[in-house]
Design a protein around this nucleic acid. Structure first.
Lengths: 173, 173
DNA sequence: CATTTTATTTTTGTTACATAATTCAAAATA
DNA sequence: TATTTTGAATTATGTAACAAAAATAAAATG
């Protein structure tokens, strides 16, 4: 006894797969199969988050989407030249006045030519320090941003190398 | 005319493929096929950068790899719960003392239950503000971190909603 | 009408296959 | 004999194909 016949509209709907999208087999080295699967899932969640301006007018429990200025990817926001950028953890409070505190993560770009006024990472006789650069014809000064600290005057006998210019600071509150 | 016969050792050797390893087909959403291929070849610039401790002993032009503490992905470093996290740009200097300045990007986690001492994003009568939370049985206070500013005492007639707790600040230097 | 059964259609992991790539050895050539 | 050409052997690689699972609608049943 047949129950047959065409059933238009029946069947699993398209887009009900785990990716909501067509898939295609790709050959992957066996050692990376799991990493690739993770990669696919992690990339599915965009690494961007909404940015709300602080002039938002709202009282609701969640900021309204109207006020989203932008979706921001932190990495892109903070690093311009990945190949030339690295992080250094700050030590001490000598730059406190400009918001660099002990333990903060500094983003350093080594491709920026250091100029006076730049906040730089300098290695003086092998010791790393963050300071504001002030170079005159006579001497090289490294200025703190905290009255409790003294400027460093680098003598000609001392070894000093500028590693890069600090572009951003990430501060745990 | 035959040129035949057994040829032991002939043929393409194993491991001469582009990955030097056995491969296996994996289903990938079509929009990510290229990203996955890049990922396999490691041509994807990983969004991680090296972190150097500030106790590095070095004088060379580039920090030595020995001193790399870690490869850091900024996004992961700063956001714990992506679905519950958003950014707000700071306005004004009322929290200057703890390193939050005008224009800084604040990372806000709305899943953290706000407690006294937490730095929170509050909407008071529709105005957004960053302050330190101090709630007593009688009243709710929002304390600045700058002597030039006054605490905000939220009266019972006023609308106040805490949007979330500030966990990190990104500061352009 | 509610529930169960059957049919239909898409997803998904894997196998299979045709073609490309790479190497070895025999045959042809110089 | 030394070198080049040709054919055979073997693995790599992209994709078609297949089978099982999943999801839904229609039909049958009570």
């Amino acid at each position: 006894m047949t129950r047959g016949g065409k059933r238009t509209g029946a069947g699993r709907p398209t887009g009900t797969g785990q990716y909501g999208e067509e898939t295609k087999p790709v050959r992957v080295p066996v050692s990376k199969v799991n990493a690739v699967k993770d990669f696919i899932k992690n990339e599915t969640e965009l690494p961007t988050l909404p940015l709300y301006g602080s002039d938002v007018q709202a009282g609701g429990p969640t900021p309204a989407d109207d006020y989203v200025e932008n979706q921001i990817n932190l990495h892109d926001y903070v690093v311009e030249r990945p190949a030339e950028t690295f992080f250094v953890r700050a030590k001490g409070q000598s730059m406190k006045n400009i918001g660099i505190g002990d333990g903060d993560l500094m983003v350093v770009d080594r491709s920026i030519a250091p100029r006076n006024g730049h906040v730089v990472i300098a290695a003086v006789d092998g010791d790393l320090t963050v300071k504001r650069l002030n170079k005159t014809t006579d001497c090289l000064e490294l200025l703190p941003e905290n009255e409790e600290f003294q400027p460093i005057r680098v003598s000609s006998e001392q070894h000093c190398h500028i590693w890069g210019v600090v572009t951003n600071v990430i501060h745990r509150v």
